[in-house]
């Protein structure tokens, strides 16, 4: 087992005033090994972005509980002055909208160069070479000639690739990618996912890929963390999630995706809709939509039960059905 690069333990995040807090993330725990690719999946509003922003300490809300350890250091204890060094050099983040991290008034070459300078690349010529190398790596044709181009002179897919080049230029140990391909067309998405896999392989970087699309996650990730209403409800390696999901929500999610060979059948639908953030204070957050719910589900939040060496899920009923009694997240 690889030692953990990042470990979140019992992370709880609130928005709103301290007197009337809205808890949007509650008791989230998971870890990422060195060089590992982990997917974070869940419906809109389930807390994926808030969780990942908390790792970067870029969040507007308050982390009221828990630890976020990177190489054994709790990031939440670090002084603000130590953050710029961590961001970019240790952990880099890319977003759905590339223009949120690219400066429209600066050439692409200068932006990547500036990121390198910030992380100790003093030599101008080396910076330039490195910038060209990164733009080539992400497949920008005529990289040298494009150093002086501005972000608006690139297409959406190319901007996404420039952003990846900038994020990985300093060889971070962890790349957090928040829906990096959601706004892109399928053929361009395929290019970008392919690129992320290449970059990861070549630089030995770990990836936390956030997406609502299990297909995208299955393409890139080895392990998956499923969130629902601010909590982790299941975690397993990708194969197990796809073939033997244990949480009724994960099962429903997989069954509601239209599948090859099942066109004539009616789609499975999870009834109801996602509860608003912070609205569920007691019991299992999925109980109003769950076909398996029993009375205990309304009273007590189920802990994460260990279903196997790499799988855990928070469900009273499936745990009992499988004879699982041991609580605790998968290793």
């Amino acid at each position: 087992m690889t030692p953990d690069l990042l470990r979140l333990t019992d992370v709880t995040i609130e928005f709103g005033s301290p007197k009337k807090p809205i808890r949007v993330v509650e008791g989230v725990s998971f870890s990422i090994g060195r060089g590992e690719s982990v997917g974070l999946v869940g419906e809109s509003g389930s807390g994926k972005s808030v969780t990942s922003l908390a790792i970067m300490r870029l969040i507007g809300g308050r982390v009221v509980q828990g630890r976020i350890e990177f190489e054994g250091r709790n990031l939440l204890d670090l002084p603000a002055s130590a953050l710029p060094e961590i961001r970019g050099r240790d952990i880099a983040m890319i977003f759905q909208e590339p223009m949120s991290s690219l400066n429209p008034l600066m050439t692409v070459g200068d932006q990547i160069g500036e990121a390198l300078l910030l992380h100790g690349w003093r030599d101008r010529t080396k910076r330039r070479e490195r910038t060209i190398e990164m733009l080539r790596l992400v497949g920008i044709p005529n990289a040298e000639g494009r150093l002086g181009a501005y972000p608006h002179q690139f297409s959406g897919g190319m901007r996404q690739r420039v952003m990846i080049a900038m994020a990985v230029a300093c060889e971070p140990k962890l790349l957090i990618a928040d829906e990096p391909t959601t706004a892109l067309d399928v053929t361009i998405q395929a290019q970008v996912l392919d690129l992320m896999k290449t970059v990861r392989r070549e630089l030995g970087m770990a990836i936390l890929l956030i997406s609502h699309d299990l297909g995208v996650i299955a393409d890139v990730c080895e392990r998956v963390v499923v969130m629902y209403a601010g909590r982790v409800v299941e975690e397993a390696d990708i194969r197990t999630i796809l073939t033997r999901p244990q949480h009724p929500y994960t099962r429903g999610l997989l069954r509601s995706v239209p599948r090859r060979g099942h066109e004539a059948e009616r789609l499975y639908q999870i009834p109801g809709s996602v509860p608003p953030a912070g609205s569920i204070r007691q019991g299992c957050p999925f109980r109003d939509r769950c076909e398996l719910a029993v009375s205990r589900c309304a009273e007590e939040m189920p802990p994460m039960f260990r279903f196997g060496p790499s799988q855990s899920a928070a469900c009273w009923v499936t745990a009992a059905a499988e004879g699982v009694t041991q609580a605790g997240a998968a290793a």
């Binding site: 299955a218 393409d219 599948r259």
Partner: peptide, 23 residues
């Protein structure tokens, strides 16, 4: 286009046709 669509399946023959260049 069809080969590029990611699907949540195990053992999908991952023989994607990755198009070069932009639209």
């Amino acid at each position: 286009l069809l080969s590029a669509a990611p699907e949540p399946e195990v053992d999908t023959v991952s023989r994607r046709i990755i198009l070069k260049g932009d639209v």
